[in-house]
Design a protein around this nucleic acid. Sequence first.
DNA 1: GCTTAACCGAGACGGTACGTCTAGTCTTTTA
DNA 2: TAAAAGACTAGACGTACCGTCTCGGTTAAGC
Lengths: 205, 205, 205, 205
Amino acid sequence: MTTQRRSSSNTSRRNEASRRAILTAAFELIQEVGYAKLSIEGIAARAGVGKQTIYRWWPSKGAVLFDAFLLMLGGEQPPGGEAALPDTGDLEADLKTVLRATVEELNDPRYDEPMRALNTEITHDPALAALYAERLDGPMREMKKRRLRSAQRAGQLAEDLDLDVAVEMVWGPLLNRWLQRSGALTPEYADSIVETALNGLRPRH
Amino acid sequence: MTTQRRSSSNTSRRNEASRRAILTAAFELIQEVGYAKLSIEGIAARAGVGKQTIYRWWPSKGAVLFDAFLLMLGGEQPPGGEAALPDTGDLEADLKTVLRATVEELNDPRYDEPMRALNTEITHDPALAALYAERLDGPMREMKKRRLRSAQRAGQLAEDLDLDVAVEMVWGPLLNRWLQRSGALTPEYADSIVETALNGLRPRH
Amino acid sequence: MTTQRRSSSNTSRRNEASRRAILTAAFELIQEVGYAKLSIEGIAARAGVGKQTIYRWWPSKGAVLFDAFLLMLGGEQPPGGEAALPDTGDLEADLKTVLRATVEELNDPRYDEPMRALNTEITHDPALAALYAERLDGPMREMKKRRLRSAQRAGQLAEDLDLDVAVEMVWGPLLNRWLQRSGALTPEYADSIVETALNGLRPRH
Amino acid sequence: MTTQRRSSSNTSRRNEASRRAILTAAFELIQEVGYAKLSIEGIAARAGVGKQTIYRWWPSKGAVLFDAFLLMLGGEQPPGGEAALPDTGDLEADLKTVLRATVEELNDPRYDEPMRALNTEITHDPALAALYAERLDGPMREMKKRRLRSAQRAGQLAEDLDLDVAVEMVWGPLLNRWLQRSGALTPEYADSIVETALNGLRPRH
DNA sequence: GCTTAACCGAGACGGTACGTCTAGTCTTTTA
DNA sequence: TAAAAGACTAGACGTACCGTCTCGGTTAAGC
């Protein structure tokens, strides 16, 4: 994985141009040919790189995919680090805005295949899942929790609410429908998830 | 797919023993060697069957996997058809019972790999997803909705609640955490999902 | 090796067209690119054949080369089986004729590289050497010995002469000069070998 | 090639220790792993040397092998330069002594593989063959011819004998049998070659 | 009951990709 | 500035599977 390489002294003789070419090629190829036909050989050929250069630096196809994601999402700065969800004071509206954006992204053919591929690799590779949790999902979740915490302090969320559960309550149904293709991802669906999650299934007297 | 074959006249000369051997072999193999190393050739060898017999009756590895699931889950009767979720009158308790059972199943190593594999195939193959929706997910979802409808009629759920959304609100977070390996699946987690889903994120006055 | 396949029942499902394409491709390629650059991959590509088809039927590159030779030399009938060296009664003249023909063949660029390659494989692979001795060198040597025996009976050769040694005395120097490139192979050289071998190094009173 | 380096001034900044380590490693490796698995990479690793150091000073694997031979045979003095074949006055006995020694050397597993490898390289590389002729085979042949010339002057060999042909007549059969593995190399075989070569194939009335 | 066509196990086939190894070049660091 | 170290592009190695295609053998259908 690329992670430990970023020491200040940078004693590694790794070729940065090759690294970027590989990750770019991987990202493009998976859009074009799909997950099933994505091959290390294809990536190397497209990147103009020897296969060994991939095997030298990444332990698996999933790891390449993961780094490709890191590169695409926000270049070098950690995702969600400084960024923040909108906070207008109206939690429901803000969440709807965010979920509608997510819906749009998941419907974007440029990101659909790559994200499905990454999810597939994660589900079958615990090591990759840990890395994903640390470097991608973690920061995003923190960002989401910050917004919820703000609402909680304002009295808009239950005091004893577990924010991790809350995050999963809002985003889980959406991702699940997308992964399992169990229904269309529409803005209306996003809205109804937010409303139902906030109000609960029970009648509010 | 095996589906349309089961007509009453059964004019097909298909070898039922081979069919079962293939599906059993597929299910066992994926537990033993994992999704990445599951091969048609391996299935055929383990089942003592020619490769062509697989290619003749199934269009893809995912389709074999799907039928293997159908065979394992409840033998021949359609899943969720007659079955019902527990209905003691106490919705919260019943849902907790069911979700705890789901948690246990997802933690069972005998089902973990096969289910991940099936999800992977579904996410990358819309045709398989449609079949899954019709034959597996559909009946299960109907069963869940029946229980929720019963509660709704009893005034325990909001009158205008979209039951499809409700189902996803309860089961979505769980499946998502499992697929993405974003946290441990514990009975307590199941409980807190049920509570949070029922009550919503907002404070209840 | 191809050898045992030629049973009368021919129960093998081997593809004869592929076999010939492979051997032809091997023979042509070694002329064109030389021994060092001859690759199984190249042979398979040129023959329009999967690599596995080569690995399935031949244990080594040398074995392919060997069969290629068998195919080129006289198609299907065993070399030297019925054939005979010229026998005009004049042993010296006959041997000169034969050695001059050998010189010409060794100087022919169509056979030079392939024969060097085969010799290389033989020198490094005893199993192949045994096969060579049995199927190629053996029959040829027998043919040569028949001619010498005829001369011996006619009193033109020493009675107690070991014909195997005699054969090597005539052909060995030639082949050695060719393999080690220690001198030009000319008709005159062929003649002088024959003369010297027949008369010996010692003065004949 | 190392050849031109041996000027008296030795202005080269070449590292002599590396040179010897490379040649020693090459010689040892070819005994241990055989010709087919001998690689530049392996030699460099065994010698504790960068690959470039080999590519800088030798044009081919064969050239390394050749120099390795030069180093092993007699250290630094040119082989056969001052040395001489035994000359007791009895040519036949002397030749038998020498050929028996050659047989022993060719049967020595320490030299078998390396010598076969060198022969292979020579047969496929005319440039190397020329170098071999000049630096190794040439001096040896000269030494052999000196002994034959001595016998010729003593009237033990035909006056008009071409000594180059004579040398090949004696050593060619032996080397050929060894390279082609067409028979066992025994002392008796050495003897019979000498006798047959000296007396010729014809009956000596 | 006899044919005949589909199904079956088996496995060869042309291919693609795997992950490893080496070739030969190039760059960086050390002495 | 030679040498060690080793990354780089390139491509062959031998293996594993892919999906297609025969090949005989064996059923079961329909004549």
